[in-house]
Nucleic acid binder design. Sequence first.
DNA 1: CGGAACATTGAGAGGGATCAATGGACGTGG
DNA 2: CCACGTCCATTGATCCCTCTCAATGTTCCG
Lengths: 239, 239
Amino acid sequence: MKQDILNAACSKCSLSETCMPQGFSSDGMTKLSAIVATRLRIRQGQSLFKAGDPFASLYVIRSGFFKTSLTESDGREQILGFQMVGELIGLDGIVNESHSCNAKALEDSEVCAIPYTDLERLSKEHSALQHHMHQVMSHEIVRENGVLMLLGNMKAEERLATFLLNLAQRQHVRGFSQSELQLRMTREEIGMYLGIKLETVSRLFSKFSAEGSIDVKKRYVKILNPAYLKSIGDKQPHL
Amino acid sequence: MKQDILNAACSKCSLSETCMPQGFSSDGMTKLSAIVATRLRIRQGQSLFKAGDPFASLYVIRSGFFKTSLTESDGREQILGFQMVGELIGLDGIVNESHSCNAKALEDSEVCAIPYTDLERLSKEHSALQHHMHQVMSHEIVRENGVLMLLGNMKAEERLATFLLNLAQRQHVRGFSQSELQLRMTREEIGMYLGIKLETVSRLFSKFSAEGSIDVKKRYVKILNPAYLKSIGDKQPHL
DNA sequence: CGGAACATTGAGAGGGATCAATGGACGTGG
DNA sequence: CCACGTCCATTGATCCCTCTCAATGTTCCG
């Protein structure tokens, strides 16, 4: 895993609002900046870490796009989530001091590595940071709860619609378009996340497109009728 | 939600090994014991909290059995997990200071309520406690990752087998039988957890029983052939 | 230009859902 | 003590959503 190491400077970072607790003292900010010493460059297709790797740091995505996944002994892969700018990866490693999932870059990316022991030490002095960590972890739990609902109760059509709307919404929060998506993952990866096969994903894209709900051209997707996509679950019986 | 309030004493509690960080100072133990002031009695069918309730405390199960679930606006319910003695409930509430899921007792139960603000304050002074909290949250994330794999990649048969083995294993860790289960939930609730219908659950119980893998009599289940149940995923193509 | 990776589309099969009927267990009230 | 209703579990018949297998098309890159 070859990586370029850059220098990080949290105080100048445009992500400081998402990444840092709000109301964080400038003293705390300086110290946090000090421990976030390294910024890594991960190329498309490279792994940030793999299941079994020793856990040392959490990673904040500076730029780029990742997937995290779990691989069974027999090769089956479940994608746990797609992470974009400002999101955190690596929380799975804390329990056993080794990672239990894989994190792979779906495009050339940069991440800030936050050494976990340093972070723990610093969060002891700064309540805001401590609370922020709890919030981030709780947020991840709540996010996964939503995915459980998706996988346990929704049909393929509703899953894909939910997925597209979620991507668009997260982009929107980051100041990008709410309706236009440039997908970073293959149909197969979408399927591995949604618990359906790639052919089903492809068929549904075609179906949505034929209905006029979206406009698809390979990885480019434009959401034309978000209200309809949201309502898919209402109109059909459930899984 | 009527609840009896009892007094708690962590230092005397038989759960202190699971509940407390190892290597926790006796001073810390005493202080933690002080904030875990209340022990609640929740009867079968009662809710400990519901989605939307303000978040105040985490809860450790002293005795009994719970389910946590997410309810969609249209009434669909996804069970997120079943919790038994020594396990923690309520982490979902930290992010938004209100709970996002429901927690209901499946049998008469007792829980220790740990006020969250007190816990945060105390964990500032005690690194071991702080680290313990991180581990517990990370553990929950890793657990949910496993459920995602189950829902996303496994067929019904494998899901149910995995579920039974998981229950048995957790019982075993707590000193109970590794092979005999007294289920606390209905077939429908098992299905709502595994993403399948209650009829399918029932049919699979019958199938496993006919194969000699388990012995079923209503809520009583005895695992006769754990190795076979573990291997179900190998022999059939996946979802 | 040819190959690899990705995407689309069709035909057929199958696993689980759905609809429906039956039976046991349990508690309540006559 | 039995009758009755309710809740839960079992089992059958049928349907349909999604998987599987397969062929073809597109894009990109060596």
